[in-house]
Design a protein around this nucleic acid. Structure first.
Lengths: 134, 134
DNA sequence: TCCTAAATGATATACAATCTCAATAGTCAT
DNA sequence: ATGACTATTGAGATTGTATATCATTTAGGA
């Protein structure tokens, strides 16, 4: 069991994520923190963001073809990214994806596309995994 | 209007994408072609894939945290990527996303997660765009 | 206060993808 | 078929995001 230490850097990353009104990416978080704490390293920001995500305190928003964005974890909701300014915003969740897509326009967005990626273990890998454990 | 030229490299990329049974990424397409045509460059493979996508002949499948995969464009369908082997496969489309998610298991996959990313133009960028055109 | 290992900062590295630019090779007009 | 024009190529440099490495620093318990 690893001992977890509270550092000022981790506190600064947490503060930057929770006080941000938008959903900043790692670089934006770094730029925010470096103003108050010039010695902080980008690597430390990435590391602490990963820790906070692992602890469930911060949610990672992966977007396609761009850097990850980060959000304090709240209820279930989807995100929308502006294809022009790359800003990420919240949208409400609906059960039906098409309903949800239409709803996007009620937020003032002009919807261009949406992508859904499922992740799972394929049958072959399930077999391999099972075989390895025998 | 740019003149489009038919090159053997473009033909080879097209052939590699359309004959592949899986959904290869650019590197896999390159490795396939380089066997028959050793002088081809990775840059040419990327360039031609982008051209084919722009022309609507090939579909780009973006996956989260990995290289893009490519598919000949057929009817509307989603994709699922194995989190272990990174292989991408087709799944049928259902209107309801949760139904679709459950359906994934009928393909033998153990579903771990799915992510939906919407893309559109935010209200601010719509205003900026409109302002620029005046 | 001292010890130990977790965390940091600086830098190197990985990886996908694009860009640069001189050389090559399609296509059109003749 | 020939030449001219320029789109395309190949090789390598470059970019952008993120992680790995490792000597140094520092949090926190004894």
């Amino acid at each position: 069991m690893k001992e977890k230490r509270q550092t000022i850097q981790k506190g600064l990353v947490w503060e930057a994520v929770t006080t941000a009104t938008n959903h900043p990416n790692a670089e934006q978080i770094y730029e925010n923190i470096v103003l108050k704490h010039p010695s902080i390293s980008r690597a430390t920001v990435y590391r602490n963001l990963n820790m906070l995500v692992d602890e469930g305190k911060v949610k990672r928003i992966r977007v396609l073809g761009g850097p990850d964005h980060f959000d304090r974890t709240l209820g279930n909701h989807y995100h929308i990214q502006c294809t022009a300014c790359k800003q990420v915003s919240d949208i409400e969740v609906f059960d039906d994806i098409d309903l949800c897509a239409k709803n996007v326009e009620t937020f003032g967005y002009v919807l261009e596309s949406y992508e859904i990626v499922f992740n799972g273990i394929c049958p072959d890998c399930q077999k391999k995994h099972a075989a390895q454990r025998q």
